[in-house]
């Protein structure tokens, strides 16, 4: 009698506890972000601004990618452009490339911006904001440091990033020589 009562209570309490814990974990604690560190970056395909070429993320294997989501209206994006460009110049021959993803702006706007800021890294035009939605971009700039296997190593939300920050994160995604 005594035994079975204790077991009964233990089972009831246990079932409720586990059930509600799982529910609450899903609700509040679990990180449901679409893109997470140490996981594969979602693949996508976009056209570049310069020559309308198709860029597919999964075809960049072997290269480290700094994927920077930005728009010309965003002040911190503008501020970090020179640092990104500098890092692109420094690391493009070492196997890490900076790729900008412009969020839904027109060619003319982005072209004049590119020329003003002397950007030489490729700019992808996310005209329908599909990739912005796919990556669940909130505040911009948001930057993903993706290694040569396509795994996200670091996510930086907000900015502007200092040159030092970019460099430190790039060293994490440098391909093994």
């Amino acid at each position: 009698m005594n035994r079975s009562r204790t077991w009964m209570r233990l089972i009831i309490l246990g079932v409720i506890f586990v059930g509600i814990s799982v529910a609450l974990y899903n609700a509040f604690i679990k990180d449901t972000a679409a893109v997470q560190a140490n996981e594969l970056a979602p693949d996508f395909i976009l056209k570049t601004l310069e020559d309308n070429q198709e860029f597919q993320l999964s075809k960049q294997a072997g290269k480290g990618i700094v994927l920077n989501f930005w728009g010309t209206w965003c002040a911190p994006c503008r501020e970090e452009m020179p640092a990104l460009e500098k890092m692109h110049q420094e690391f493009k021959d070492k196997g890490v490339e900076v790729i900008g993803v412009n969020i839904g702006e027109s060619d003319v706007t982005v072209e004049s911006f590119r020329d003003t800021y002397h950007i030489s890294f490729p700019i992808l035009m996310d005209r329908k904001r599909e990739i912005t939605q796919l990556y669940e971009i909130g505040p911009i700039p948001t930057t993903y440091f993706i290694d040569s296997d396509g795994v996200v190593k670091k996510i930086v939300i907000g900015g502007p990033m200092a040159e030092k920050t970019i460099k430190e994160n790039i060293t994490q995604i440098l391909p093994q020589q």
């Binding site: 728009g71 010309t72 209206w73 702006e105 003319v108």
Partner: peptide
């Protein structure tokens, strides 16, 4: 030729043309 386009024109603090929003 359209050289520049600012959909929501304003000046930055250092008096450079920019856009406030897309």
């Amino acid at each position: 030729k359209m050289l520049e386009y600012y959909p929501d024109f304003e000046f930055t603090k250092d008096k450079k043309p920019t856009t406030k929003s897309p």
